[in-house]
């Protein structure tokens, strides 16, 4: 496998009971690129994202992050399920940002950011606090360090969530519709932080409905529908000149 590839999916299938959600996804995310996933709801894009850090187990195919098989270990032609501890270790390098933020409500913004470094990486508290301060400053919330999530707006909460994910120094960031739960006027601040992150060279996989963001910041774009990749390419090409009929009809509704 090329050293330039961060995420590689080979014929990934996923079903919930009888419902086939992913029906053979093949794609590659190169290191340092912003990879956007778009598609109608129920197309499987969020599910695919959750497979990348093994929050969902895939039923068939192979999924690699940085050359490592996700959730399994292959020896010869046999696959072994990884233990919980090993799965946790894999996830440490993959940051994730959720649609509903999922900040820990019983901790302040700074404590949210410090939690994983202190508990998982065993960073000293003072070091983690210093780092949390830097990260909160980076997302423009230095003055909110001691506020609880309930005292922050949605946009601020989502920026804290991004800082929390960055605190583990991930090599890959997953964004699951990060702006979908936000009031329109708060979307911009979050997108600014993501744009800034993209410029710093972070590899990002972004499930989004923000076509403007995809066009401006994205390096690759995939349109998914019905659990398969319908069309992929450079965002500008796909968004302005979609080749596939389903892409055209989806874009005509959202643009």
């Amino acid at each position: 496998m090329s050293e330039q590839v961060m995420v590689k999916a080979e014929n990934v299938h996923k079903s919930f009971g009888h419902v086939q959600v992913l029906q053979g996804i093949d794609l590659e995310v190169r290191k340092g690129e912003v990879f956007c996933l778009i598609g109608p709801s129920g197309s499987g894009k969020s599910t695919f994202l959750r497979c990348i850090n093994h929050l969902e187990k895939i039923n068939a195919g192979r999924l690699y992050v940085d050359g490592q098989l996700v959730g399994y270990r292959q020896q010869g032609d046999k696959l072994y399920e990884l233990r919980d501890r090993e799965v946790a270790a894999q996830r440490r390098d993959i940051g994730m940002v959720f649609q509903r933020f999922n900040l820990f409500p019983h901790m302040t913004a700074a404590e949210n950011v410090m939690e994983a470094p202190v508990q998982v990486k065993k960073t000293s508290k003072s070091q983690a606090r210093e780092r949390a301060r830097e990260l909160l400053e980076r997302v423009g919330l230095a003055d909110k360090a001691d506020n609880y999530p309930s005292q922050l707006s949605g946009g601020q909460q989502q920026r804290v969530a991004i800082a929390r994910a960055l605190a583990m120094d991930p090599k890959l960031m997953l964004f699951d519709e990060p702006t979908s739960a936000l009031d329109p006027e708060l979307v911009g601040d979050v997108l600014d932080v993501m744009r800034d992150l993209a410029e710093s060279g972070m590899t990002m996989v972004v499930v989004t409905h923000e076509m403007g963001f995809a066009r401006e910041v994205g390096d690759s774009l995939v349109f998914m529908d019905g659990g398969v990749v319908v069309e992929s390419g450079h965002p500008r090409d796909v968004l302005t000149d979609p080749q596939h009929e389903r892409t055209q009809s989806f874009l005509s509704k959202v643009l």
Partner: peptide, 18 residues
């Protein structure tokens, strides 16, 4: 407790016990 809390913690690499 909302399931999103567990997911967020696991996505950060925290063990089940933690």
């Amino acid at each position: 407790v909302d399931e999103g809390q567990t997911e967020a913690a696991q996505a950060l690499g925290m063990s089940h016990t933690k």
